[in-house]
């Protein structure tokens, strides 16, 4: 199974109930499959950063085996609204 940006987005929306996901394929800048994601989910509410990142890592555990570099940003809907208005 080839990992694609669409696949990553769909999975995060489905499994983490993400209300907004940006997936950037940064592979052209690097030597192998690389992605940068922004995940906005109410499930992150009240959870520290490390735990949020672990949730994303768990959700994409299979995909991460194929991915060389992975950057992530995890926000609650509230944080996302705040960031957008800045």
């Amino acid at each position: 199974m080839a990992v694609t940006a669409d696949h990553i987005r769909d999975k995060l929306i489905k499994e983490l109930a993400a209300v907004h996901v940006d997936v950037e394929d940064t592979s052209p800048n690097r030597c192998a499959a690389s992605y940068k994601v922004l995940v906005v989910s109410p499930q992150f509410e009240g959870k520290p950063l490390l735990q949020r990142h672990r949730m994303v890592n768990t959700c994409l555990a299979e995909e991460l085996k194929e991915i060389h570099a992975f950057e992530q940003k995890t926000l609650t809907p509230e944080q996302w609204e705040k960031q957008k208005s800045q």
Partner: peptide, 12 residues
Amino acid sequence: EFVGGCDILLQM
């Protein structure tokens, strides 16, 4: 204690 990777350290 595990702190995190690059993204987490950067945000901290």
